[in-house]
Computed example of a mutant assay.
Amino acid sequence: MNVKIARTLTTAAAAAAVTALGFAVSASADPALINGTYAVRGGDDGAMVTASSSCPAAVNGCTANLRSTLGWTSVATFTDGRWNFTVTKPNGVVCDDGSYAAVRIAYSVDAATMTGTVTADSNGDCPGGQITQAPFQLIKVG
């Protein structure tokens, strides 16, 4: 009878240790670096983005160089679990007066899920626009 109790307690202690270790590992795991090639879903649908970072881990202040198949480049900065970057498209919109203006698009991506938001002014630098925000995702393909 004592052997049965001892085995039960040992099994319970081992299970608790594994559970605690699992929480410790997941709590201390570093967020993902943004290295590789990603397909964009939302925002610039159909675009591919190649990212490269020389940081040893994703920590505040880490940066990654981004290059899109649509021709834009940017630098993403890691801050509080998110990769943030801005893309400027010169002459990206035609204003009401017929002139061209730049469009600045801000992206914020959760490092764990690679989902985030894209924010832009509907009129770019032309007067009278509205700030819009939409979801998007980076899907690792290489």
Score class of each variant (00 low, 15 high):
A17K: 05
G43I: 03
T77Y: 09
A39P: 11
T19Q: 02
G43S: 13
N84A: 03
C95F: 08
C55F: 09
P56Q: 15
V93M: 12
C62G: 06
D96K: 15
A14W: 10
T69P: 04
A16T: 01
C62D: 08
S53V: 02
A32P: 08
T77M: 07
D30A: 14
T88D: 09
G71V: 04
A39R: 04
D44P: 05
D96H: 05
D80M: 07
A27W: 12
D30H: 10
S26F: 00
T77S: 07
A32V: 07
G36L: 08
A32D: 13
A51H: 06
L21R: 02
N84K: 01
V18C: 11
S28C: 09
R82E: 14
L21V: 06
W72I: 10
A57P: 04
D96I: 07
A15F: 01
G36E: 05
S54D: 11
L33H: 01
A24N: 10
N65C: 10
A29P: 04
F85Y: 09
L70N: 11
G71A: 02
C62V: 03
C55T: 02
L33Q: 03
A27Q: 02
W72P: 06
A17I: 15
A32Y: 09
A58G: 11
T77E: 14
T50L: 05
G42S: 15
S52Q: 15
F23Q: 00
F85P: 00
A14S: 14
A24S: 08
T19N: 01
G43K: 06
D44A: 15
L66I: 06
F23E: 02
A39E: 14
R67D: 09
R67Q: 15
A57H: 08
R67N: 14
G92C: 12
K89G: 03
G42H: 14
G22W: 00
G43V: 00
F78S: 07
T37M: 02
G61N: 09
V93G: 05
G36N: 08
A32H: 15
A47P: 00
G36K: 02
L21S: 09
G92A: 04
A24Y: 10
N91E: 02
T79P: 03
A64D: 08
A76G: 11
A29I: 10
S53N: 09
V40R: 06
N35M: 07
L70H: 12
T19H: 01
S53Q: 03
G43F: 12
V75W: 09
A24F: 06
N60V: 03
A15Y: 01
T19E: 00
P56T: 14
V18L: 11
F78E: 03
G46T: 10
D97S: 14
S53D: 00
T37Y: 07
V93F: 10
N65L: 12
V93A: 05
G61E: 04
A57V: 15
